[in-house]
């Protein structure tokens, strides 16, 4: 990964400086055909605005919801998305892979 897309980390820093609560989500493990490689980032602020991508659009909505929790609690979370169960079509990866996403708060 030659990092073309990670100006989002600069935006995370700017959001934080502007007084926003900010969370950083990172793809930490993938199995099967995953749309985005490990290390891909999504940044989320307390208004629910997000930038970047952890799955090419499949699970970002769910990650944003969890990220808002992480912003208020300060506790990091590990999320897993796949097609292993029937709910998968709601927040799953249609490509058949599984990804694990680490969500952490950008602290003060």
């Amino acid at each position: 990964m030659l990092s073309r897309d990670d100006d989002i980390l600069k935006i995370a820093e700017d959001w934080k400086k502007a007084g926003h609560g900010v969370a950083l989500a990172t793809v930490v493990e993938t199995w099967g055909s995953a749309p985005r490689p490990t290390g891909s980032h999504l940044v989320i602020n307390d208004e629910g605005t997000f930038l970047g991508s952890v799955s090419g659009g499949c699970v970002e909505g769910a990650v944003v919801t969890e990220a808002l929790d992480v912003i208020s609690s300060g506790q990091p979370k590990m999320l897993e998305f796949g097609v292993a169960d029937e709910t998968a079509w709601n927040v799953g990866l249609s490509c058949g892979g599984t990804i694990r996403v680490f969500v952490e708060k950008v602290g003060s």
């Binding site: 990670d6 980390l9 600069k10 820093e13 934080k16 952490e104 708060k105 950008v106 602290g107 003060s108």
Partner: peptide, 15 residues
Amino acid sequence: MKAETLAQLNAERAA
């Protein structure tokens, strides 16, 4: 990630 770590990381990336 600490805000300080993020700032340092961005400084390295910018350079």
